[in-house]
Design a protein around this nucleic acid. Structure first.
Length: 627
RNA sequence: GCCCUGGUAGCUCAGCUGGAUAGAGCGACGGCCUCCUAAGCCGUAGGUCAUGGGUUCAAAUCCCAUCCAGGGCGCCA
């Protein structure tokens, strides 16, 4: 907020001097010597009135200097290279920042961007036939962090996990149970059992036994009908796998408000309603000849940007619906194009207790009809998501389509070395994961391995603590380290996973962040008995001022992260703050310094600690007191 | 073939949407524990921002072309 106040003052001062302008192009200079706020207004005006920018800057400057006294946060103004640079009154600024952090505490950084608007965030969406692997977890971490950030800026957020219990991957394991004699019980955790053993094995068998593919088609049809014994059986298997997937999500610190069963889109007639609307709007066509004979399709000419591609089949010639058809219905439900026909039941049995769609549900709650629908789905589905957006636009107009966001991110792949560990040998630098071929790392396994590594160090650092204590700390650190690693990369970059490279314990890592936080806590633990003197008497040194400014910047980081839907902004912020704090920590003693420096420094450390905690929360990292 | 995305230090990546002298981590080299946790800190070396053109006061950032890498173009999801 402090930056808001400073920016506000600068804007007001500029407006007073240049009443004709409304936009002042404020920015934060990269170099300290260029002050705290800069404006490029002189360049903009130069273009407009065809005058030398330097001359204009000087004119503005001479006017500004006369009214400067009215703006207490502005200490100094300079013109450098045509920029007008403002320097903050550091003493006053410091006071404002500290007071704000200490009064707001956990609330510090909260701003109102959302006005309580309803947002649905769909994430994770792992097929219920396997355990969650690190690729899925990138999705979970992004979606969960987004939901935390948007909540923080006053959106009314609901998180959804869309479970495809009707698709072909589901049929693969059902085939395993019903035709290939895999027992229903196993010593292995059920999600891993289905994914690591049955799914991989069944896909292997398809290679040699084509009959099985025929059986699979039968099963798909039975599942789709939703009325047979197989359909019932499938639902139970899916629910059991989901149970363990949710355990993994819980371990990662993610939560859900609602499980959307894809089969319920059909069962609750959402698909039927959707098809009616598409038919009324003449968006779908029943093909009577050529290759899509008997199918209901969307003509490609209707799809913006994909006019030259093939038509989209949404109902197959056998009458079954494609994934796309259900996804359109799902999107319509999210945006309120169709009424919320679902029934919901609260399921407290899940590791993450939450609602789920259920034919016998009777809870008095409605999730559909949101102001904004964000779907966290990897880049491979870009085209399908484009199709959905085009259709929304045709049905509800451009404005409505803007409320549907495909939040895309690149895949997690494996390094050549990592693939080799799984017994997959190749020349290529990166290897894409594949559930079918068994080329993947399950998130729980990765976390367990990471935890073991961390445990050794925690034990060494805290020899007096017992096993349980070490275990708890190590678990939190492992999860935070994984979240950090999965979040720090930009969404449009492929994350090449390699255990040792990706999950480093030093440098730009989650462990480094926690270590920095632990240092703040170490100091604060020791000063509990000290009485805090009047810290305002102290004049902060350069490094302290830098930290204060960084602390103040948190609100801006939150704003940018929320507006651009970029949790990475928070990660970068956290790292920057840790870097500053660690340098400071090495250079200046806190407890052993003289008053009033000591009081000030204790307060400063308190603030760093608090802001780090708030920031970590936004990306789902768990602060620990010891390491 | 068509469409989309990426290419910044040896490696992995930032660079706040057009601004001032392009920054971190890892790796390499040299230092720092009598002192709040050395999973840390300080210093050195390392760059034709893939290439070529363009737009303008100003380009890593925008436009065009080319090259390289990845993805998408199913009655799969």
């Amino acid at each position: 907020m402090s930056y808001e106040i400073l920016y506000g003052e600068v804007r007001k001062a500029l407006k007073e001097v240049i009443p004709s302008e409304d936009e002042f192009y404020l920015e934060k200079p990269l170099l300290e010597e260029h002050g705290d706020v800069a404006t490029t207004i002189a360049f903009k005006l130069a273009k407009k009135i065809k005058k030398n920018p330097l001359e204009i800057a000087n004119e503005i400057y001479s006017k500004l200097i006369q009214i400067k006294e009215k703006y207490p946060l502005i200490k100094e103004i300079k013109v450098i290279n045509g920029y007008i640079n403002f320097y903050v009154n550091e003493k006053l600024f410091t006071k404002l920042v500290i007071e704000e952090i200490l009064s707001k505490r956990k609330e510090y950084g909260k701003i109102n961007l959302g006005n309580g608007k309803k947002v649905l965030i769909e994430h994770t969406n792992t097929n219920p036939n396997k355990a969650i692997h690190i690729g899925h977890s990138r999705n979970t971490c992004l979606g969960d962090s987004l939901s935390r950030i948007l909540k923080f800026v006053n959106y009314n957020v609901y998180t959804l996990n869309y479970i495809d219990d009707t698709g072909s991957q589901m049929a693969d394991i059902i085939l395993g149970f019903t035709k290939l004699g895999f027992p229903l019980e196993s010593q292995i955790r059920f999600d891993k059992y289905c994914g690591d053993h049955i799914y991989v094995k069944v896909n292997e068998l398809y290679e040699t036994n084509k009959e099985l593919l025929v059986e699979k088609q039968k099963i798909i049809k039975e599942i789709d009908s939703q009325s047979t014994e197989i359909a019932e059986f499938t639902r139970n298997i899916a629910r059991k796998v989901l149970y363990y997937q949710l355990q993994t999500c819980l371990r990662l610190g993610a939560y859900f408000d609602l499980i959307n069963w894809e089969s319920d889109i059909v069962r609750f007639n959402l698909l039927k309603r959707t098809l009616q609307i598409l038919d009324e709007k003449r968006i779908i066509t029943k093909e009577t000849e050529e290759e899509n004979k008997g199918c209901i399709v969307i003509k490609s000419k209707l799809i913006k940007g994909h006019e030259k591609e093939t038509d989209q089949v949404i109902i197959r010639s056998d009458g079954s619906s494609t994934y796309l058809a259900k996804d359109i219905a799902y999107a319509f439900w999210k945006l309120g194009i169709i009424k919320d026909e679902f029934k919901y039941k609260f399921n407290k049995e899940y590791p993450i207790p939450c609602y789920e769609t259920d034919i016998e549900g009777n809870e008095d709650i409605k999730f559909g009809g949101a102001d904004l629908a964000i779907s966290v789905i990897d880049v491979r589905q870009t085209r399908l998501q484009d199709v959905i957006k085009s259709i929304i636009s045709l049905v509800g107009g451009e404005e409505m389509a803007k409320r549907y966001i495909h939040y895309k991110y690149e895949l997690v792949a494996l390094s050549n070395k990592a693939a080799k560990e799984l017994g997959y040998h190749t020349e290529s630098k990166i290897v894409h994961m594949s559930g079918r071929k068994g080329i993947y790392f399950n998130t729980d396994d990765v976390l367990d391995k990471l935890k073991e590594k961390i445990k050794q160090i925690v034990k060494k650092n805290n020899p007096e603590k017992d096993e349980k204590w070490v275990e708890e700390i190590s678990e939190k650190v492992a999860v935070s380290a994984l979240r950090y690693a999965l979040l720090k990369l930009d969404n449009d970059k492929v994350l090449v996973f390699d255990f040792d490279e990706t999950l480093r314990l030093e440098g730009d890592s989650g462990v480094y962040v926690l270590y920095s936080y632990v240092r703040t806590k170490g100091i604060l633990r020791k000063v509990r008995e000290f009485k805090i003197g009047n810290y305002e008497e102290y004049i902060p040194n350069d490094m302290e001022v830098k930290i204060i400014k960084k602390l103040a910047w948190f609100t801006e980081a939150v704003k940018i992260a929320a507006q651009n839907l970029q949790p990475q902004i928070i990660i970068i912020y956290i790292r920057d703050l840790c870097d500053l704090f660690n340098s400071y920590y090495e250079k200046y003693p806190v407890i052993n310094s003289e008053e009033p420096a000591r009081s000030f420094r204790i307060i400063l450390v308190e603030c760093v600690s608090q802001v780090l905690e708030n920031a970590m929360n936004l990306v789902g990292m768990t602060p620990v007191e010891y390491l």
